[in-house]
Simulated scan of single mutants.
Amino acid sequence: MKRVLITAGASGIGCAMGDAFDAAGFEVWVTDTDRAALDHCPAQWHHRVANATDEAAMASIIAEMGHIDVLCANAGIAGPTALIEDVALEDFRACVSVNLEGAFIAAKHAAPLMKAAGRGAIIVTSSTAGIYGYPNRTPYAAAKWAMIGLTKTLAMELGPFGIRANAICPGAVEGPRMEGVLNREAAAKGMTRDQVYDGYASGTSMRSFVEARDIANMAVFLGSDGARLVSGQVIAVDGHTENPDPKV
């Protein structure tokens, strides 16, 4: 049975990925820092408490798996919403660490197992903030742009071993995390939460937020044999973002 590892897999996009890979017949392994959320994961999933930036913990989990067919480097945090002059350096570093270093660590330790098998797929959860500049989101955008550079480099480096690497760039995803972003952005800009929400939605040609399952469905495709020659790609699942900061 094929195995997938999903970091930050106990809730949100990660949990939706777990459900989708489970339905596709994969053995699902998830890591997360939220023990309570992990306890609510399906019983057939392998779940481990681990911070994506804890290299020793992640290395141990990946070694325990024995083989890994698909890695979903999904862990991330939103970071502060503020003008650059108001962003504390420690907050910048924390955001970059979880998003970028977390993906690097997981890929670093998954790659040898994939090389031994002569196949594998690495899927990095970036963001449309990794395609466009996002005002008031300096740490997050910087991290997500860097994750795309990481993905494209992995595709070049690991392709000769039969390993593919792609980045998914979600747009605004319905859920608690985005609600926090909306409320912080509203406070920073002197707007209401609904005004910011409408601005994000109207900035897409589909006039819609994204659901976690939309990201999960793309991840399953990228992890499948149907995507055997899809590598080094940056794929937005965002309802087509025309303007990342519309009417705001």
Rank of each mutant, 00 (worst) to 15 (best):
A167S: 14
Q195S: 05
R207Q: 12
A212S: 15
G190S: 05
N183A: 03
S231P: 07
G175L: 03
C169F: 04
E185R: 14
Q195N: 04
M218G: 03
S208H: 14
A186G: 06
V173N: 04
G223W: 00
A201K: 15
A186P: 07
M206E: 14
A212G: 12
I168D: 00
V210L: 11
A186F: 08
M178K: 11
S205L: 11
G175T: 01
G199R: 03
R213S: 13
G203D: 02
P176C: 00
G226Y: 06
F209V: 13
P170A: 06
R184G: 00
D214F: 09
M218L: 15
M206L: 15
G223I: 01
A201S: 08
A165E: 05
T192Q: 01
E185D: 03
A227W: 01
N217L: 13
G180A: 00
L182E: 07
V230H: 02
T204P: 07
I168V: 07
D214T: 13
G175H: 06
G180Y: 01
M206P: 07
V196L: 11
A216F: 04
L229F: 12
N166Q: 08
M178N: 08
A227M: 10
S231T: 15
V210Y: 07
V181D: 09
Y200M: 12
Q195K: 12
L229D: 10
N183H: 02
L229H: 14
N217G: 09
N183G: 00
R184S: 11
A172M: 14
S208Y: 12
S231D: 04
V220G: 02
S208W: 08
I168F: 07
E174G: 01
V220Q: 01
G223Q: 01
A172H: 10
F209S: 12
R228I: 02
R213K: 15
V173A: 08
T204W: 10
E185M: 12
K189T: 03
E185S: 08
S205T: 13
V173M: 09
V220F: 06
I168R: 03
S224C: 11
C169P: 01
S202N: 14
G203M: 05
A172F: 13
D225M: 08
I168M: 06
A187G: 02
M191C: 09
S208D: 14
A219D: 02
D194T: 11
A188C: 09
D198I: 03
E179F: 02
R207I: 05
G226K: 06
K189A: 00
I215Y: 05
G190F: 09
R228N: 10
L222E: 10
S208K: 15
G175I: 06
A165S: 12
G199F: 04
N183Q: 07
T204C: 04
S231R: 03
T192Y: 01
G175C: 04
L182Y: 14
Y200Q: 11
S231C: 10
M178E: 10
P176M: 02
A216R: 06
G171P: 02
